[in-house]
């Protein structure tokens, strides 16, 4: 048996299924449901076994068509930067407000992806988000939390 990435993923999946199965057994069902042939636990328990079964087979059986990804082709740095930008975006969207966090998210992600035309970056961030906000907030009356704009006194 040759060890490759798909096998490692399958192993992780096997562990996940086992954990899922364990958690499924921990589900507290109501007293009146405990004797029922099919209660809230039943399906998850079978599901846990199914996950262990399929991933187990994948680990044991030989690969018909192994997939190998050459890591030298992968752009880890860019991807991780972008994921981190998204996480920061998610963390600030409620606290700082929709306008600034969205605009900055766009600015940074354009930049990380290699965009250097500043005019382009600036047009498709702040004014773009302002128009988007106007359509949602003003026209469709979808409330967008924005403590910053509230502080400035633009938004109620």
């Amino acid at each position: 048996m040759k060890i490759n990435s798909v096998k490692i993923i399958s192993l992780l999946f096997f562990v996940l299924s086992a954990f899922y199965l364990y958690t499924a057994h921990q589900i507290q069902v109501f007293a009146f449901d405990e004797g029922a042939p099919f209660n809230a636990k039943t399906f998850p328990i079978y599901l846990g076994y199914a996950g262990m079964f399929f991933s187990g087979l994948k680990i044991v059986l030989p690969d018909q068509k192994p997939v190998e990804v050459d890591p030298t082709y992968l752009e880890f740095k860019k991807t991780i930067l972008l994921v981190l930008t998204m996480v920061v975006y998610g963390a600030t969207i409620l606290k700082v407000g929709f306008f600034l966090s969205t605009s900055l998210f766009l600015v940074f992600s354009y930049y990380f992806l290699g965009e250097r035309r500043w005019k382009f970056i600036l047009i498709f961030s702040f004014p773009f988000v302002a128009i988007f906000m106007y359509l949602l907030h003003g026209v469709l009356a979808v409330y967008l939390r924005d403590p910053l704009l509230k502080y400035i006194g633009i938004m109620g």
Binding site: M133, I152, I154, M155
Partner: peptide, 18 residues
């Protein structure tokens, strides 16, 4: 800067009493 941002926004967002 504050004034400028306010100006841009005052035109596009629904204003309400501050």
């Amino acid at each position: 800067l504050k004034k400028l941002i306010s100006l841009v926004f005052a035109t596009v967002l629904l204003t309400s009493i501050s």
